[in-house]
Design a protein around this nucleic acid. Structure first.
Lengths: 143, 143
DNA sequence: TTAACTGCAAAGGCTTTGCTATATA
DNA sequence: TATATAGCAAAGCCTTTGCAGTTAA
C-alpha cells in the first residue's frame, strides 16, 4: 500500500477516490514530518487555497484508516500527524514544550514486560512520554 | 505539605486561603481516584450545588501547583486528575478505551535509559501509554 | 445519473478569560 | 476596608455534524 497505484485501487475497492485534496493532505503530512491538522491545512492551502479544514480532518481520518498516517497525542492541544514511515517515540518536555524523538526500539524492553504481565500490546508511537528535558534540568530558571 | 495545617499555612504565605470550594475539589479528587474536571465538578456539586466548573478548573490548577494533585492525558478528551499519593502509569487501550494501571517502577529501566541517552527525566505518570489490551487482542471482533 | 466528496455553517466538547459581586482577613 | 475568590457569561480552541452543491465514474 505504499505506492500511488495500489493506494488508488485500495480506495477503489471501497468505492472511494484519491482526490486532489486527499493527495495534498498526504503530501503535506509527509513534508511536514509532524503537524497538527491546522498546520496541515495551512500547508495545503499554500497550493489549493480553498481547501477547508473540515476536509483536512476527514482526509486525515481516512488516511489513518488506510494506515498511511498516524496521530500522536503529545499532551495538551491538538494531536500531531505524521507519515506511517516516520515512526518514533516522542519525548515531550512539560516545562518548555520541546519535543525530542527517540527510536521505538528503546521501549522494547518495556513492551515485553507489559505483554507478559498484562497482555498489553504497547503502541509506542501513539502517545508521547512526558518529563523534563536536559535543557530545562540544567537551566531550571529559564522558561 | 500533606496535612491541612501546613497546607493552610503554605497558602497563607502566598496570601491565599483554603476555601470550602478548594477543599471540596481536593476531597473529590481523592475520593474519585481518577476524574475529569467535569466529574470532579459533579461530585462537588453533590455537596455544594452552586459551585461552578470554572472554580473547579481554577482549584485544580492551584492544587496542582501545590503538588497535591496531578493530571494525566490519556489521549482523547479531558485529562484525568488524581491525588498525588495515587501515582501510577496508565495503560490506555485505543480499541475499547479501557484503562489499566501499573506501578511506575515498571518504567525505571526506560527512565534510566532516557536519562543517560538524552538527559530526559521521565515523568511516568503524566501521559498514559497506549496500545491494545488483552481483551481486545483475544477478542478482535468485539467492539 | 448516481454515489462520493467538498465546502460552508453551525454546533459540540473542553477550557480560559473578563467582569462583578462576595467574602474574608 | 482591601484583597482574594467565586460565580456567571462569553469567548476561544479543537473537532464533528448536517446539508447542499459539485464532481467524477
Amino acid at each position: 500500500m505504499r505506492n500511488q497505484g495500489s493506494l488508488r485501487s485500495t480506495l477503489h475497492q471501497r468505492g472511494m477516490r484519491m482526490t486532489p485534496q486527499r493527495q495534498l493532505v498526504l503530501d503535506a503530512v509527509r513534508e511536514l514530518g509532524h503537524a497538527t491538522p491546522e498546520q496541515v491545512c495551512k500547508r495545503v492551502q499554500g497550493t489549493a487555497a480553498t481547501v477547508n479544514i473540515t476536509t483536512v480532518y476527514r482526509s486525515l481520518d481516512l488516511l489513518e484508516q488506510l494506515g498511511l498516517v498516524r496521530h500522536t497525542h503529545l499532551g495538551h492541544g491538538a494531536p500531531t500527524y505524521s507519515a506511517d514511515e516516520h515512526e518514533h517515540v516522542h519525548l515531550v518536555c512539560h516545562h518548555c514544550g520541546a519535543i525530542d524523538e527517540v527510536p521505538c526500539e528503546l521501549l522494547d524492553g518495556l513492551a515485553d514486560l507489559l505483554a507478559e504481565q498484562r497482555g498489553f500490546a504497547l503502541d509506542a508511537s501513539h502517545l508521547g512520554l512526558s518529563g523534563t528535558c536536559r535543557n530545562c534540568r540544567e537551566n531550571p530558571t529559564a522558561v
